Lab assay of single mutants.
Amino acid sequence: EIHIRTNGEEQARKVYKMLAKRNYDVKIEQHNGQWVVTAS
């Protein structure tokens, strides 16, 4: 499982799309105001 911390919604969405293209199961979560993308 991969966790990627991003500094904002826009970046989180870019990372989300990139990983989704590679057939990862991707989730975006917010932790303490930080956007974290989780891929498995």
Rank of each mutant, 00 (worst) to 15 (best):
Q30G: 05
E29V: 11
I2S: 02
I2F: 13
G33Y: 03
R13K: 11
N23H: 14
K17E: 14
R13T: 05
E1L: 14
I4G: 01
K21V: 08
E10F: 09
E9D: 03
Y16E: 04
G33A: 04
E29M: 11
Q34L: 10
R5T: 11
R22L: 15
G8P: 02
E29F: 15
Y16H: 05
E29P: 00
N23K: 08
N7H: 09
N7Y: 11
A20K: 15
K21T: 08
K27P: 00
G8Y: 13
E1R: 14
T6P: 03
A20L: 15
K17V: 11
T38V: 14
R13V: 06
K21C: 15
E29D: 06
Y16F: 11
Q34V: 14
T6R: 05
N7V: 08
K21L: 12
Q30R: 10
G8I: 13
N7T: 11
V37D: 00
V26R: 02
N23W: 14
Y16V: 06
K14S: 06
G33D: 06
H31V: 13
A20H: 06
K14P: 00
I4E: 02
T38E: 03
K27G: 04
E9F: 14
T6S: 05
K17S: 09
N23G: 15
K27W: 07
H3A: 08
D25F: 13
T38A: 04
A20G: 04
Y24I: 06
W35H: 01
K17T: 11
V15P: 00
Q30M: 10
V36T: 06
N7G: 07
N32A: 09
K14Y: 12
R22W: 14
W35F: 05
D25M: 13
S40R: 13
Y16W: 06
K17H: 10
K21I: 10
N7R: 12
V15W: 15
G33Q: 04
M18L: 10
H3S: 12
N32Y: 06
R5W: 15
I2K: 04
V26N: 00
K14M: 10
R22K: 10
T38N: 03
R5Q: 07
E10N: 09
Y16Q: 06
S40N: 08
V37W: 02
W35Y: 04
K17N: 12
N32P: 02
